[in-house]
Amino acid sequence: MPAPARQRCHALLSALVTLATAVVLSLTAPAAPAFAADAWTELGSDRADPLTESQGLTSVEVPAGSPNRYTGIGTIPLGVSSRGWNHVGDPDASYNGYYIEPYQRDSGNSKMFRVQAPGGAWSEYVHTLGPKEALNNSWVAVPPDGQWMLAGEYGTMSRLLVFPTPGVNASTSPSANLPQASTVNLDHAVRDVQGCDFSGPTTLLCSSDDPAGTLFGVTKPLLQVDLSGPPNGSADVSGHVTALRQLPLRSSCSGTFETEGIDYDRRTGTLRVIVISPGFCVLTDSKTYRFTRG
C-alpha cells in the first residue's frame, strides 16, 4: 500500500478507536449529579442568636398564632443535658400540633426524640440504634399525614430513616423502644444534611453543610428530595435528589460557615434556613435567610 494510503488508513483507524473509547466511557462513567435551576428567590434575613437559634427552627401551625420555634445549645433543659443528651438538632411540628426535637449524646447506642403534646406536656421517646446506624440525630421532618416521621444521620449518606411519629402514631409509647420502620433510599448520596422539611406530601427541602462540594459541584447546597410515595412503615420508598442552589455565605468574617436547620411554612410559602457565620462573627452576623419560590 502506498505511503499516503497507509497514512490515511492509520488516521481513520485512530479516529475509530477514539470514537469507540468515547462511547465506552460514556456508557460506563457515573451519571452527573442532578442540578436544577434555582427556583428560590431570597427575600431577606434575620439575625440568628448563637445560643438559642443556632441549630434548627420550625413554624408551628397548631394552635393558630403560635410563634416560630428554634433550637440551640441554650434551649436544652438542664434536666435533659445532665443525662447526656447534649446536642439538639433541627425540630419539626406535626400538622396537628405535636412539636418534636431530635437529641443525641456523645456515646452509647441510642438517640432520643423529645415531644411536646398540644396541651403542653413533654415526653421522651428513645430509639436503640440499628446495625450500622450513626449515633447522630441531626433533624426530624413530619409529613402532612403525620403518622410517619423522617430523621437523618450526619456524614455521607444514601438513606433517610423512617419512624412512627412519636406521640402521634398510636403504636408509640415513651416506655417502649421507638423502632425504625422503613427507609428512604436515595438515588444520589448526600453529605452532612443538617435539616429537612416537607414542602408537600412527597417533597423534602434539605439544608446540607457539605464542605467539599464534590457531590453536586457546590458547597453548602439547598437540596430537594422527591419521594416515590409518602413515607410509611410497611415498605421502603426511593428518593430522587436534586441540588437547587448554594445557600448564602455572607459575613464580615472570613472562614468556614455552617448551614443548620431548615423550615418551610406552608401557610406563607416561605422557606427559612439558618447559616452560622465563621469566627467571631458567629455572635454578630449569623443569619436566618428567607426565600420564596419563583
Rank of each mutant, 00 (worst) to 15 (best):
S54I: 06
G56N: 05
I73K: 07
S54R: 08
P30A: 11
A36Y: 03
G65N: 11
T71E: 02
G74I: 08
I76L: 06
R83S: 00
G65Y: 09
G79T: 03
G44H: 08
R83H: 00
T52H: 09
L25I: 13
T28R: 14
S54Y: 10
A48D: 07
I76N: 04
A36E: 08
P77G: 00
V62D: 06
D49C: 13
W40N: 09
A31D: 00
A64H: 08
V24M: 10
R69E: 11
E61V: 06
T71R: 04
V62I: 15
A48P: 03
G72C: 08
P50Q: 12
W40S: 06
I73T: 02
L51W: 15
A64N: 07
S59Y: 14
S82V: 02
T28E: 05
A36K: 12
R83Y: 00
E61F: 02
E42S: 12
R47M: 09
G56D: 05
P67F: 03
A37P: 00
L51Q: 13
L51G: 08
A37V: 05
G72R: 13
P50C: 10
A64T: 10
P33G: 13
F35H: 12
L25G: 05
A37E: 12
I73D: 00
D49E: 14
T52N: 10
Q55C: 06
R69W: 10
W40K: 08
A34F: 01
R69A: 10
S66I: 04
R83K: 03
R47E: 11
A31C: 06
G65D: 07
E61D: 10
V62E: 10
P50Y: 14
S66F: 04
T58A: 13
P63L: 09
T41C: 14
S59Q: 14
P33C: 11
G72A: 10
A31S: 09
F35S: 12
S66L: 05
L27S: 02
R83A: 01
G74P: 01
D38F: 09
S81L: 01
G65F: 08
N68E: 08
I76W: 07
S45V: 03
G56F: 07
A37D: 11
R47D: 06
S66R: 08
I73N: 01
Y70A: 03
E53Q: 15
A37L: 08
S54F: 11
A36G: 06
L57V: 07
G65R: 14
L25E: 06
S82M: 03
R47C: 04
L78I: 00
P63Y: 03
D38W: 07
T58I: 05
G44A: 11
R69F: 12
A32H: 11
D49I: 10
P50M: 11
S54G: 14
G79E: 07
A48Y: 08
W40I: 06
T41N: 15
S45F: 13
T52S: 14
A29F: 13
P77H: 03
D38A: 15
S81N: 00
A39P: 00
L78K: 01
E61Y: 05
E42M: 15
A39Y: 02
F35Y: 09
S66E: 04
V24E: 07
A32W: 08
G79Y: 04
G74F: 14
P67C: 06
R47W: 11
V24K: 10
L78P: 00
F35L: 12
G65Q: 13
P77F: 04
T41Q: 15
G79N: 05
